[in-house]
Simulated assay, not measured.
Amino acid sequence: MNGEAPLHSAGTMSESRLRTSEDLVIAQYRERLRAINSPLALSAEAWAQCELQARRIYRDCTRSYTAGKPLVSDTHIAEVVDLGGERVRQGVHLTHSVRAGVLLFDLVLDQVVEWTEADGAPWSAYAAAVRSLQHSVGRRLEAGSIGYDSFMLARVREVHKQGHRKLAREIHDQIGNSLSLAMRQIELYELELRDRGADVPKHVRAAREAVLETLASTRELVTELRRPTVAGSLETALNHFVMSMGDARTPVQLWVRGLDEWIPTAVSEELFLMVRECLRNVYRHAEAGNVVVHIDIAPHEIQTEVIDDGLGFDLASVHAGGRSNGLTGLEERAELLDGTLNIDSSPGRGTHVTIWIPIKEDPASPPPAPGRAPETEGRR
C-alpha cells in the first residue's frame, strides 16, 4: 500500500455494516412515510421507485463518507426527470416528493452523525457525506420538479390544442354549413332568374361575392385553428407551419440561432405570428423560387430576416390600393413589442423583411437607446 494509511477509520467499514444500516434506514423511511399517509409508501409501484432513489442517495452518501469527498451519481439523477411525469400519472403531487426528500435527508443525516461519533472520523468525512446528501437529494427534487412541470405543461398544451380543434369543428359544422346553405339559395335564385330570361340584380351578385368571401375566410380560420402553435420551440413551430403549407414549389430554408429560453413566451408567440404572416404573403403572392428565414436570438434582442426572390411589389401601390391589412398587422405587432419592421421590396426584385425586437428583463425598463435598432424605411 506504499505505507499510506487510510484517510480515516470509515475506510474500513465492512460491507455487512453498510448493508445493515442501509436496510434499517430504508425501513424507517417507509414507516415515516406511512405515518404521514404519503402516497409514495401506500402504492407498491410508487414505493418501488421511491425505494430505488432512496437507496441510491444512501449509497452516494456512504461512498462520499468513506472517500472523504462528495461523490454523486449524476447519471442516476437524470432518470428522475421522467419520474416527475410518472408521479403525475400516479396522482402524486409534487409536495409529496418534497416531504419525502426532507424525511430521507433527516434519516440519513442521523446515520452520518452516528458513524462520525462511533468512528471518530475527521471533519472531512462528515462534510463530504453531508454535501453528497444535500446534492443527491436536492438534484433529484430539482430534476423531478422539471419533469413534473414539463408533463403538466404538455397536458395544458394538449388541452389548448383540443380546444382549438373543437372550435374548428364548430365553425366548420355550424357556420360553414349555414354559409353553404345561403350560397345554395343564392344559386337557386340565380338559376330561376336565368330561366325567366332576367338579369341577376347587382345586389344579388354582391351578396354572392360576400358569401363566397366569408366562406373562404371561414375555411382559412378552420385551417389556422388546426395548425400547430408555438410549442416546444420557435423553430419547430415554424417548421410545422412550412410543412403544413405543403408547397414544394417554394422551398424554405430556416435557421434559428440562440436559445428559446431567452425569449419570453408572449414575445415568442408574437414573433411566430409575424414570420408566419410573412411566409403566407410569399406563398400567396410572391411566386418565389427560394425563401430564407434567419432568426438570431440573443439575450437582449432578436433579429429576424425573411428574404424571397419572388415578384416583389411596390409599397406605395399596395398602400394606395387598400390591400395592406396584413402588412399593417405586422407593423402593429412590431410596435407593440417596441420593435421595428423594415420592408425592402420592388417589382421584380423580391422582398426583404427585417424585424428587430428587444428582449426586456423588466417590463418597466426604459426603451432601447437610439441607434440600437435598424432604420425603418417604407412600411405597409
Rank of each mutant, 00 (worst) to 15 (best):
R169E: 02
R139W: 04
R284F: 10
A5L: 13
A266W: 01
R219G: 08
A207M: 12
G84W: 01
N177W: 00
D309G: 12
H135F: 07
A118H: 08
S150I: 00
P201F: 12
N281H: 13
E86T: 05
A182D: 01
I186M: 02
G371R: 12
L141D: 06
R157K: 03
V80M: 11
L94T: 04
A46R: 06
G101E: 06
T354D: 14
L225Q: 12
I186Y: 01
S345H: 11
E142I: 00
L52R: 14
I297H: 06
E270Y: 02
L153D: 07
V137I: 09
L315E: 13
G329R: 14
G144P: 00
R59I: 03
A48N: 02
E332L: 14
D247E: 14
I359M: 05
I359L: 15
L107E: 07
V159Q: 05
A27T: 06
A35S: 08
E287V: 01
S217H: 15
H240G: 08
V102T: 08
D344N: 15
A127H: 04
A67P: 01
A129G: 01
L153T: 03
S317I: 13
T116Q: 12
D195L: 11
C61R: 01
E114I: 04
G147N: 00
H285M: 07
G11V: 01
G147C: 04
V98S: 05
A266C: 02
V159G: 00
R63G: 06
G101T: 06
V102W: 06
W356V: 03
E45M: 00
R55H: 06
S64W: 00
A100N: 05
G147D: 02
E335Q: 14
L254N: 11
L109N: 09
D344M: 12
L273S: 14
R63D: 10
R157E: 02
A129R: 03
I175F: 07
E4Y: 09
A210V: 04
D314L: 14
L83P: 03
P70E: 05
I36L: 04
G85K: 03
A154N: 01
S317H: 15
E142P: 01
